[in-house]
Write a protein that binds this DNA or RNA. Structure first.
Length: 565
RNA sequence: UGGGGUGUCGCCAAGUUGGUAAGGCACUGGAUUUUGAUUCCAGCAUUCCUAGGUUCGAGUCCUAGCACCCCAGCCA
């Protein structure tokens, strides 16, 4: 398949590079990328940026994008992670067709390549232990010195390397090193390790191998074997590019993909390193990788984020080489944008306050029509039951409200969404505590549906639920995982000390309208005036659980805060 | 004090050959609204890390600084 340059101008600097390559006829107009995760953890929103970029390039240039597991280190990698990664990429909406590969598929080829480099005098077996090797490597400012094993004969190297593979030596006894330049100012070029001995069972190759290739050697060769044209990776590999190029030049017979580096994603109020996320999981500070507080893709999914929202976010933040930290609010805005158009509305009361409509008959149930979406009639309507006793949100009533409060107050009217205009006649309090226990109100029968035909203006509209007909549910309110923007900012303070204890607040006395009795996990709704909610993975008809994805924007919250301060 | 990168509005980010600072988010007004939601309209960088220089003209070119990030795993 042949590609043409980006029709509407390049999206980012990588597209510009691809455009140039296409114009100059490089790779015969072919564009091939890959997404190469290491299966040692779950994918997070940062990976989504890379996935969208790599699969996006392939799509925009009619090229291909492979999924390739970088499984060269069996001590940290597991099948569980492989499965989770496959699910996550699929869920995000990308398709690698039949092109799912594993670096471990190439182990025999890597081995042959290593033998070739030994024969070429470009690799040698070294007996230095880890400490000695560090010593010989030199420092950032001082050059290293040659290993005493650097000048072994070809025959000896070949013999030793074969015996490494055969399992004759214990872990750490020997390594295979590239013979480059111990005085290079780039530390990666100071005779880097190509193979180490690890007597370890590999998730895919089992016990077939006890030597495993290092990233720098395996990655470039994998790219070349798959005929990748543009090998996109993150900034920290910039220093490794000379090594990437060195291996392929020395081997000489393989295609030579171009490595291009971009800045990884950082988000405020969370952490993005697999190590830190794993720490939260294994120390049980969260409920696993799929905890809705986590920035993992499975966590975001459980929280109610849509693939569309995540893709749109990745599109909007752009791709550059500048280290950047995107505001969490931006991600949140992207979900709202998607959920707003896609999600049916419903009513739920999270912190119920009982209201008795004193002039409404005891046993009467009045079914009222309510639209599933105010701006999209095609989503249809449902009926909501109105009864003498209802619940409203505790926040929607104030005894001594400021002037700007236009919800329910004593002696004043408010509209119940899709129902009636009611007036608060009496506040009933607990004699002992003084806490408000219920409100007595009257309704105006002439306002059925919520409109005042006499033209009187009702500023406030609040949501409600029938006490008799509502269904009880648990609602989990999520907030940011950390209470500081950059929890990793101070190297002397453990990031976990900034964990936000209120990141999860579970409400078990919530009521939802009966139309939602049969919801299934992952169904999404907007609870009017409250936010977007998603049915939890573990929710059942007997015990409904909703997760709050995000709140709605709330300009009242701002003015209320101004009043409080 | 070695090497590799990056510096354009509070946060992202355009700005291909020098021609007089896109867009999104946030924010601030205002309109519509039976969600204080949505939608809509308006405002929001005389200035591009700093200082010099070249030029009729510089975010874009030159020089010298400064700041921040990455690299001394037999991790990726």
């Amino acid at each position: 398949m042949t590609s043409t340059v980006a029709p509407n101008g390049p999206k980012n600097f990588i597209y510009s590079i691809v455009d140039e390559d296409l114009k100059s006829g490089k790779n015969n107009g072919r564009v091939a990328t890959r997404f190469p995760p290491e299966p040692n953890g779950y994918l997070h929103i940062g990976h989504a940026k890379s996935i969208c970029l790599n699969f996006g390039i392939a799509k925009d240039y009619s090229g291909t994008c492979n999924l390739r597991f970088d499984d060269t280190n069996p001590v940290t990698e597991e099948q569980e992670y492989i499965n989770a990664i496959i699910d996550a990429v699929k869920w995000l909406g990308f398709d690698w067709q039949e092109r799912m590969y594993y670096a471990s598929d190439y182990f025999e080829r890597f081995y042959e390549g290593a033998v070739f480099l030994i024969k070429k005098g470009r690799a040698y077996v070294c007996d230095l232990n880890a400490d000695e090797m560090r010593e010989y490597r030199g420092t950032l400012t001082a050059p290293g010195k040659d290993s005493p094993y650097r000048h072994r004969s070809e025959a000896e190297n070949l013999d030793l390397f074969a015996r490494m593979r055969a399992g004759e030596f214990p872990d750490g006894a020997k390594v295979l090193r590239a013979k480059i330049d111990m005085s290079s100012p780039n530390i990666n070029m100071r005779d880097p390790v190509m193979y180490r001995i690890r007597h370890e069972t590999h998730p895919r190759t089992g016990d077939k191998w006890c030597i495993y290739p290092m990233y720098d050697y395996a990655h470039c060769v994998s790219d070349a074997l798959e005929n990748i044209t543009h090998s996109v990776c993150t900034l920290e590999f910039e220093d490794h590019r000379p090594l990437y190029d060195w291996f392929l030049e020395q081997i000489g017979t393989l295609p030579h993909p171009q490595q291009i580096e971009f800045a990884r994603l950082n988000l405020t109020y969370t952490v993005m390193s697999k190590r830190k996320l794993l720490e939260l999981v294994s120390e049980k500070l969260v409920d696993g990788w799929d905890d809705p507080r986590m920035p993992s893709l499975i966590g975001l999914r459980r929280r109610g984020f849509t693939p569309q929202a995540i893709r749109s976010f990745c599109e909007k933040i752009g791709v550059t080489k500048q280290e950047s930290t995107v505001e969490m609010g931006y991600l949140e805005e992207c979900v709202r944008e998607d959920l707003n158009v896609v999600t049916p509305r419903a009513m739920a009361v999270l912190n119920p306050l009982r209201i008795i409509i004193t002039n409404f008959p005891e046993d009467k149930v009045d079914y009222l029509d309510a639209a599933y979406h105010p701006n999209d009639p095609e989503m249809g309507t449902r009926q909501v039951p109105f009864t003498r006793e209802i619940y409203i949100e505790q926040d929607d009533f104030m005894e001594n409200p400021p002037k700007e409060f236009f919800r329910l107050r004593l002696g004043q009217e408010v509209r119940l969404r899709y129902a009636y205009i009611i007036k608060c006649e009496q506040v009933v309090k607990d004699a002992a505590t003084g806490a408000i226990t219920e409100l007595h109100c009257t309704y105006d029968p002439a306002t059925r549906g919520g409109s005042a035909l006499d033209g009187r203006k009702i500023k406030g509209t609040i949501h409600w639920v029938s006490a008799a007909k509502a269904i009880k549910a648990e609602v989990r309110l999520y907030d940011r995982l950390f209470n500081v923007a950059n929890p990793s900012g101070d190297k002397d303070v453990d990031f976990k000390t900034y964990l936000n204890p209120k990141a999860l607040v579970s409400l078990t006395n919530c009521f939802i309208e009966p139309a939602l009795a049969k919801v299934k996990p992952e169904e999404k709704f907007q609870f009017e005036r409250l936010g977007y909610f998603c049915v939890d993975f573990a929710s059942t008809a007997e015990k409904l659980v909703f997760n709050r994805t995000v709140t709605l924007k709330d300009s009242w919250a701002k003015t209320r805060k101004q009043h409080e301060s």
